[in-house]
Design a protein around this nucleic acid. Structure first.
Lengths: 286, 286
DNA sequence: TGACACCTTGTTGTAAAATTACAATTATAG
DNA sequence: CTATAATTGTAATTTTACAACAAGGTGTCA
């Protein structure tokens, strides 16, 4: 897609030279200002010459500076996220909430780009054929596991989430070939989960990891749904990564439903209908 | 906001003179071409002089022609919903996963625009001063409640999430003034939750709802954090709304931490440090 | 180490674009 | 049919974007 100039600015310094990167930085600091400034003022702000700004635009597949401004403007308008901005102590509500919303969007956008469709496809296949689905997570990923259970139990496949280390180990040991185990971890380094993954593997289950690529857990799983999370100081808890994990869960659930075909949807409707009486007037699942 | 330049062009010939209307017509015929043309070519296409085009722009509250092009471009970008694409049965992995990622981003972007900073601010204040924090949710919102607990328990305030209707009612009845109850619901129409909200109110707790605006739950809460969720057929489970809810939780947690000030962060660090031994090498909380 | 090629960046100059100031035209009211 | 105001166009000015070229680095190989 040609829209995401900002994304490319953020992620792709490789195709840019040193002073072009200076331009990129100035733009990222305040894109809304950038689209209103002339090539001259931008050059001054970045301490480079005007032609450098122009070359910078060309490096990004624009025909020139006006074209770049246009694309950038559209990017901003769609709410296409950018974000280099971290929350600061001096931020007021609007500032930090904007930053968090943007960071979240950005993380999803990154994931969209980097996730392996092939791995997704294989996971959907595995889930659709599974005899049983188990989902393990700890800490913040525990809630994600619970959420996944809430989605998958609607399939006709038995499905449980465990958020307790001991239960996970026992359950993993009890799996058999044909069972699918989804393990969710932000870091992929939690010792307990890695060990559980090995136990599940040894029992013959198909182990799917939603986690950081190149992590121990990623290495020990059959299928990796890699979510790179550069986020987080050592103070805050995972924010964007667990949201990306949930989105991945959505994709998987959707994939499985699609794979089951249209006649399956009446089954889903029946499940939903069971909730009707719990609500005022009419509406949808909680 | 200046979004609706196109709308005004279509509807509002009153503030425009005869030749300015000619300009408007040419632009409306092909807005996408208009944003790429110079004032000269546009003037020629409309058979008017260049300053007329410029005056036309000024009539529309733009500072000049470039500014007009910019606003028009943004208008076109937002108007072009590359986002409102629904998943279809014929979609392959890449298609439906793209759509889900995009829909999620779009929902977050909408929420960012529509959320009330004042309500956020009041919620953060309430949470920071709370004697106790309770979080209630059912179904998919149950996981959100659990996640919120996982975030808030790091504050020095006692914090519990309940995902069981009876426990929620009992807990709500046990609240006192100074306690804060957060109720999370996609629809805001779940009878049990609305009743629980009333019980909590009657007990003197401050009730905060993360839910659909104008819903029964929204009406019955002290502070509404409104999340509009147009999503979902009667088949799929809530996807984007719960993710937006989580993002709102992130904002609240961040707000509370910021309010507590820098000396509080060492407390958070200590909590994180407790996890170090559960991991391979080094990393962050799950 | 020094010479050469190559890449990056800045300087100068020019064409194009946008805008101003002002003149001409058209419409409007008395 | 004037006088006035509003509208539109012309011409000059200013600003902007870009191309051509030159200067300064950087790295490579003899």
């Amino acid at each position: 897609m040609s829209l995401n100039i900002l994304e490319r600015l953020k992620s792709n310094p490789s195709c840019l030279s040193k002073s072009e990167r200076k331009v990129a930085q100035v733009i990222l600091e305040d894109p809304n200002k950038a689209i209103r400034s002339s090539i001259a003022s931008l050059a001054k702000a970045a301490n480079v010459s005007e032609p450098t700004v122009n070359r910078f635009c060309r490096s990004l597949d624009c025909t020139g500076f006006p074209d770049f401004k246009l694309k950038l403007a559209q990017c901003l308008a769609t709410g296409t996220p950018y974000v280099n901005r971290n929350v600061e102590a001096s931020d007021n509500v609007e500032e930090y909430s904007s930053k968090i919303f943007e960071a979240t969007m950005s993380a999803i956008s990154d994931a969209k780009r980097s996730i392996d469709p092939n791995a997704l496809s294989r996971t959907v296949d595995a889930l659709a054929q599974a005899r049983r689905i188990e989902i393990y997570g700890l800490g913040a990923s525990g809630s994600v596991a619970m959420d996944a259970q809430h989605k998958f139990f609607r399939m006709n496949t038995p499905c449980v989430a465990y958020t307790d280390v001991l239960q996970q180990r026992m359950a993993a040991a009890a799996t058999k070939p044909g069972d699918v185990v989804i393990i969710i971890s932000n870091t992929g380094r939690t010792i307990a989960l890695v060990e559980t993954a090995r136990i599940a593997r040894d029992s013959g289950a198909t182990v799917i990891a939603i986690t950081q690529p190149h992590s121990p857990l990623a290495e020990d799983s059959h299928i990796l749904l890699g979510v790179d999370s550069p986020e987080n100081t050592d103070i805050y808890t995972p924010m964007t990564s667990r949201i990306v994990h949930l989105t991945v869960i959505d994709v998987l659930a959707t994939g499985v439903i699609l794979k089951h075909g249209p006649e399956f949807q009446s089954h889903l409707k029946r499940i939903k209908a069971a909730l009707a009486d719990t609500r005022f007037k009419s509406a949808e699942t909680d």
